[in-house]
């Protein structure tokens, strides 16, 4: 489980730099929000995995993780710096996808909205780092200022590295 801890530490450190920890529960209590409708509020302070763990498990939500045949999830084993940087982007992007589906149904879960935005800002940071070194991931990237046009740089996602 070596890789796992390395990724998690790296992500946690990046998170601390960008976002001083806040006490989400307190800010909710201070605003005096009453939990009347579970679907509207979501489950308060619901436990979720950290992005990398959720990513390799395929779910950010422990209660929905039901593996088949495997005792431990497969670790991501990047072969170079590019693939390693992409793993952080993948993990944070995955966390956003899974929280988005949850928030569609529980739009008043303020805690989860904060987590979503924390991951979003972290992902943007890693995207900038990645794109300055390896070219654009999206057509809105600053890396498209470069000459010649960088969008068609290989590898394309399906190419074997």
């Amino acid at each position: 489980m070596n890789n796992y801890y390395n990724y998690q530490n790296y992500l946690n450190q990046a998170a601390k730099k960008m976002n001083p920890p806040t006490d989400n529960m307190n800010s909710l209590k201070n605003e005096g929000i009453v939990n009347q409708n579970q679907m509207n509020m979501g489950q308060m302070n619901k436990k979720i995995y950290e992005p990398y763990e959720g990513f390799i498990k395929g779910s950010m939500f422990p209660e929905l993780y039901k593996p088949y045949k495997i005792a431990n999830p497969y670790e991501i084993k990047p072969m170079n710096e590019q693939a390693e940087l992409l793993t952080y982007i993948d993990a944070l992007g995955f966390a956003m996808i899974d929280l988005n589906l949850y928030l569609d149904l529980y739009p008043n879960d303020r805690n989860m909205i904060e987590r979503y935005n924390q991951y979003r800002m972290q992902k943007e940071e890693f995207m900038k780092q990645y794109e300055s070194k390896f070219g654009p991931l999206v057509t809105t990237s600053d890396a498209l200022k470069n000459y010649p046009w960088a969008w068609d740089n290989r590898p394309w996602p399906w190419e074997n590295k």
Binding site: F55, I76, P78, M79, A83, L86, T87, I89, D90, G93, F94, I97, P136, L137, V138, T139, T140, W151, W156, P157, W158, N160, K161
Partner: peptide, 11 residues
Amino acid sequence: LYEKKLEYPIN
């Protein structure tokens, strides 16, 4: 919008 990567890596 296209993101030039897979949701999960495949090699």
